[in-house]
Amino acid sequence: MTSSTTTVATAPEAVATAPRPQRSTPPLRRTVPLRTRWQRDRSLVVMTLPALLLLGVFAYVPMAGNIVAWQDYSPYVGIAESPFVAWDNFARVLGSPAFLHAVRNTLVITGFQLVFYFPIPIALALLLNSVLTPAIRTTIQSIVYLPHFFSWVLVVTIFQQMFGGAGLVNQILTRNGWGSFDLMTNPDTFLLLITSQAIWKDAGWGIIIFLAALSTVDPALYEASVVDGANRWRRMWHITLPALRPVVVLLLILRLGDALTVGFEQLILQRGAVGAQVSEVIDTFVYYQGVINGDWGFATAAGLMKGVISLLLVLGANKLAHAFGEAGVYQRA
């Protein structure tokens, strides 16, 4: 299953819907003078300006506040007056053994979900796409996305009422004398539990982006391939999957960039049930050690380190994608 996405990505004979990275570009770029390029690409640059303006004002200006990572910051004293403490906050984050433990838990959860959660919406989209009767397809689609709008509190409650020690399943089991189990408080199966919850809540919502990708496939390609004698399996391999490939690769890269972020609210809600040993992740660690104590410097330092690592992961994943001949987020320069 893991390999599915990468295999797809490498299928060399696939119908190319995504442009290949243009190798001719670099030499071109060096020779074309800036003025010419500006004249050629002026409208493109102008088009990005509104977004840049909004991000500049509302993301970058307040981002300057991250300087408090090097301060013992108090909002009532202000950034200007708060004392600088050099790398103290960073050292405090890294120096805590609980932090390393939280990092490990985070990576384990991310890794597990990458394998067992990430492919699910893709599979579901393909499955739905293969339903031929539009009425059925639309109906199912209009049902599966709904849990996305449930709060985590409700999702956890629903799971508790189904699989908890006093839940529906256990009631049936005990009534028939088949013993009982408690999925909700078992640290050993916690990974499985939170992944199931995530799948239940968000997999149905996750499919829409893949459906959009599937809708771009030119039906003529299918007809042509049938004429060439391709069966449905080969059609999926050579037409359907390649159409999904660019967006799958993009999402995979971005997910890797988010590797250090896993369901904060979901985990905090179930922390008592399974214990911090398995449920402490980076975000909950920072929350308990920094945020709720108003230790802004600590929390910001942790956030900055996370950001740097995320960025490196994305850039790394992007490089990897290039190695497989994918566009990824960036083009090869």
Partner: peptide, 12 residues
């Protein structure tokens, strides 16, 4: 539940 971002302020 809990406010879902570590970037948000704490309250304790």
């Amino acid at each position: 539940g809990v406010v879902g971002s570590a970037a948000l302020a704490g309250c304790r």
